[in-house]
Design a protein around this nucleic acid. Structure first.
Lengths: 263, 263
DNA sequence: CAGTGGTCTAGACCACACT
DNA sequence: GTGTGGTCTAGACCACTGC
C-alpha cells in the first residue's frame, strides 16, 4: 500500500504542491485519488451523466481502501463534479440533468416561487466568429486578436424580454457554432456545450453591478433608458480552472431578483 | 451503544423527521450527535471563539465512536458554525475572527484586490426604537406594530460614501441598542451583536436588484439621482433558521462590485 | 436477490501546536 | 512529550435500487 508521500499508483503522480513552494506539499492519499479520478473526468473516460465505477472497483484499481476512495468522491460531490445516488452509483455531473436546471442562473421571479414559470424563450440575435477584444482575450486566456465566438441573445419569461446576454467563447474549442445550434437546442446552453463540444463548465465567478442600458440595449429589451439593470459578468471554467466562457448578462430586476444564499 | 433509530443518549432525542411526514424519518447517528452539539451552541454552553471539547471527549460524553463525532463536526464546520484547527482544537465560529472579516459583505473594490483597503469608516445616521412596518415584521417573524430597532448608517471606503444601510432588528432581542454602541465598536457589526446581545448570525439570504436612489438617498451618498445602485436585501438568521435581522443596503458599483462564486 | 452507496466502529499512525 | 485534529484501514451492518 502506498504511503501518503509516495507516488500514487497507476499513471502520473498528482503533485499537489507546485515546484518551488517552500512547504513540502504533503498531499493526503485521498487527494491523490481525487486527482486520479479527476484525470478520468477530464480525459472523458466517463462522459457527463454516465456512471463511474463503484467505490470498491476504484479502491481495487488504485490499491487503496474503500474509505479513501469514498473521501475522494465526497469532495468531488461537494464540488458538484459528480452526483451520488444511493443504491445506484455515482454519476458524472451534467448541466442536462433536470434535477438542477440552470445551475448558474440565480435570477428568480419575485412572485410565484415556481422557478422557471414554464421555460425561458430564447431569441438569438447574433452568432459569429470574430477577433477577441482585449478584455475578452484576458478573461479567456487568449491573445488579443485570437479567434472567438460571440453570441448575443435575449431570454424572455412569460413573453417579457428579461435578460440580454453577450457570450464569448474561445474560437479553438467552439469552431462552427451556429445560430441554429444555439436556438434549436432545448435546455441549458451548458448542456449543449457538453454534448456538442465536450466542454463541461464546472465553476464560475460573477461580478455584479447596477448599470443603465445604452440606447441599443434599452431598445432590445424594450425598456426605457432610465431603467437600472443588473450587469452580471460571469467567467465560467472547465476543469483545472481553465476559463472557457465570458458572459455578460443584463437582467431586468423589476419583476425578478438575483437570489444568493450566504453561509 | 445506541442504534441509529434509538433515542440519542443524554437529553432529548433529536427527531430529524417532522411529525406527520410519511417517510419514517431515519436519522443517522452522526446527525443526532450534530443536533446535540448544536443544542450546546444554541444554549451558549460554549461561546463564540471558544474551544469546544475534543472529539474524544464528545465521543465519551455521547457514548459513540470518535469517527461519528468527527462526521458531526465535519458538517458543522462545512456550515461555518465551528472552525477546526489542527493541533489546537475546534472553535465556535465568530464574526470577530480576523480570519473572516465581513463574512457576509461581498462588495469588493474593482482595483487593488487588497480587500478592505484599510477599513470601512462608519457613520451612524439614526438609531431608534419604533413599530415594525408590515414588510419588516414579516421578514423578522414579528407582528406588525411590534417593537423593532432601526439603524441607518453609511459606510465609506477611502473617504467615499459607498454603502447606505437600513438595518431592522427585533426589539425584544436588541433592547437598548444605541448610536454610541453602533459607532464605537471596532470591527463587524455582527461581532458586536455576539458580544453585547448573544445573537449569532449563522446564515443569510440576499435578494439583489438594480435601483435608482430617491432624492434623500442620493443626497446621503452624495451622488446624482441618475446613478444606478445595487439594492441588497438581506435576511440574516440565527440557529434554527430564526430570522434576526433585515438589512437593506444600497451599494455604489462604479468603483466596487458584488462578487459571487458559483459552483 | 445482489450490488450500490451510507453509516458506524476501532485502532493505528501522521501532522501540528504548545509547553 | 502530550494532546489535538487529520488520515487510513478493515470489517460489519443498514438503506436503497433494480433484477
Amino acid at each position: 500500500m502506498p504511503t501518503p508521500h509516495s507516488t500514487a499508483p497507476e499513471s502520473a503522480a498528482t503533485t499537489t504542491g507546485s515546484a518551488g513552494t517552500s512547504t513540502p506539499a504533503f498531499s493526503p492519499l485521498y487527494q491523490q485519488i481525487k486527482g486520479l479520478i479527476l484525470q478520468g473526468l477530464e480525459a472523458g473516460e466517463w462522459r457527463p451523466g454516465e456512471l463511474i465505477p463503484s467505490e470498491m472497483e476504484l479502491a481495487a484499481r488504485f490499491k487503496v481502501s474503500q474509505g479513501t476512495v469514498r473521501k475522494a468522491i465526497d469532495e468531488l460531490a461537494s464540488e458538484n463534479l459528480v452526483m451520488r445516488r444511493q443504491g445506484k452509483g455515482t454519476f458524472v455531473a451534467t448541466h442536462a440533468a433536470q434535477q438542477v436546471q440552470y445551475r448558474f442562473l440565480k435570477l428568480h421571479p419575485d412572485a410565484g416561487d415556481l422557478q422557471g414559470e414554464g421555460r425561458a424563450e430564447r431569441r438569438i440575435l447574433d452568432c459569429r466568429r470574430l477577433r477577441a477584444p482585449a478584455e475578452v482575450a484576458r478573461a479567456l486566456a487568449l491573445r488579443t486578436g485570437d479567434a472567438a465566438m460571440h453570441v448575443r441573445r435575449i431570454l424572455s419569461f412569460a413573453g417579457v424580454p428579461t435578460i440580454l446576454e453577450d457570450i464569448w467563447l474561445p474560437g479553438h474549442a467552439f469552431k462552427g457554432l451556429t445560430v441554429e445550434q444555439m436556438s434549436s437546442y432545448q435546455g441549458p446552453t451548458y448542456a449543449m456545450f457538453e454534448l456538442d463540444y465536450g466542454v463541461r463548465m464546472v465553476r464560475a465567478d460573477e461580478k455584479i453591478r447596477a448599470v443603465l442600458p445604452d440606447a441599443e440595449q434599452a431598445q432590445l429589451l424594450n425598456i426605457p433608458g432610465s431603467m437600472p439593470l443588473l450587469s452580471v459578468e460571469r467567467t465560467a471554467f472547465t476543469y483545472n480552472d481553465v476559463p472557457m466562457e465570458l458572459r455578460r448578462g443584463l437582467y431586468r430586476t423589476d419583476t425578478h431578483h438575483y437570489r444568493n444564499a450566504l453561509s
